[in-house]
Write a protein that binds this DNA or RNA. Structure first.
Lengths: 221, 221
DNA sequence: TTACAGAATTATGTATACAAAATTACGCTT
DNA sequence: AAGCGTAATTTTGTATACATAATTCTGTAA
């Protein structure tokens, strides 16, 4: 029996949204750089119509900035906006913690412990990418456990502004130790199913990250 | 000297975004209703190209939902999403309060007191629209005073989901009394420049609103 | 009458064509 | 050579045309 071909029910413009997001996330399209429609059409092999729809969608999401009659540029994020975002993330993660602690399932708890262990391995191995991935998995799981889709979606919007920091951030030994200690506090609060405690730990965790980033930014101007 | 004509530097699609947002906010386009491109083109007097760009932008913002090959519908908000949104709003307003209290200016404080007084007048006059406007002004001022643009923007996104409740919500006497008492607590915390206190009041304020809405929704199913 | 198959119509998705604004190139003047 | 104004080119904005999927209509059979 021949395998069923994966019919493409997706439209060109939504596919373009996906691809452009990747290019921006990977840094292939740098913040501030201009998007020339013709060039992108040629490289993607599509006409301007779906490309422009994709550009408008990304602009509405805040990833691009439109200037009338002058096209789109990749949105830039100022240092102030980064620090602002950490404050907002603190409030969101705090709420996530409060909601997650009484609701987390055994499977989610196990996933969290596994991710934490994997994160420690990554640290020992000096695997920075792996560390970020595991860290991300931990926080994702907490938001999943919170069971509030609006919260998760809101977090995604804000998180996008700070995720690119991974390109420039170097984590010092003591900073790493702090982060791991805070993560272990999270596990304790989760096991105790203590929502307020987990919320407090997460708020503190985000605040210490914010201060780390503030120091990095101050150091390199 | 003839007055300078206001040149329209705005594009059709961004204008369409504005108009469509209005139609959705006013309830002229009901949640769940389908947007037929040709009909909208005829009524706006534009071609499909800019209209579709506007539709894609609104979909990216979450106001519309796209179904492949089947067009756009106005996003529906479930009761769960409304209650979720109040939880997120609580976290955001709490942070706004913490930041605003130490930073608020004299002018902003005066505006707050004026809006509060006007809100009381609206209550006495039974002016529900005025009440909502003043209430909105109070919370806007607090977010302005917080001085965190990311926070304000995040709040706007979440607020959109619950703003349409004003169409269905009837405020009982005791609910009104609670809201006013909480607003007066806010003014006290602001005068004391006590961030944590203002944050706590705002979190409590949003939580009591959430519970009110939960009761309304439960009552009318 | 109801159910269903297939044609006709309508709506959406994409490409192309045309208009207007912005950018670049070029030549002129100083 | 530098500055500036104008023409040529490029790029964006909008309209139209064509292709394909979805819906509606219609006629036939049970």
């Amino acid at each position: 029996m021949t395998e069923i071909e994966p019919i493409r029910r997706t439209s060109l413009h939504s596919e373009l949204v996906r691809r452009l997001k990747e290019l921006i996330a990977d840094g292939a399209l740098r913040p501030g750089s201009k998007l020339v429609e013709k060039d992108l059409c040629d490289s993607f092999g599509v006409s301007r119509t779906p490309l422009r729809e994709a550009i408008r969608a990304l602009a509405a999401e805040g990833l691009l900035v439109l200037t009338p009659n002058r096209g789109a540029t990749v949105a830039t994020v100022t240092e102030d906006q980064i620090l602002e975002s950490f404050l907002v993330m603190g409030a969101l993660e705090g709420l996530a913690g409060e909601l997650a602690a009484p609701r987390i399932t055994g499977a989610q708890m196990a996933a969290l412990r596994a991710a934490h262990a994997a994160m420690l391995d990554c640290r020992r191995a000096g695997d920075l990418d792996g560390y970020y991935a595991q860290n991300r998995a931990i926080h994702d799981t907490i938001f999943d456990a919170a069971g509030n889709g609006t919260l998760s979606e809101t977090r995604r919007m804000v998180h996008r502004r700070i995720v690119n920091l991974r390109f420039i951030a170097r984590i010092g030994d003591e900073e790493w130790a702090i982060a791991i200690a805070e993560h272990e506090e999270m596990l304790v609060a989760l096991e105790a199913r203590d929502g307020p405690a987990l919320g407090a730990v997460l708020r503190r965790h985000l605040e210490s990250k914010r201060q780390q980033v503030a120091r990095w930014l101050a150091r390199q101007g």
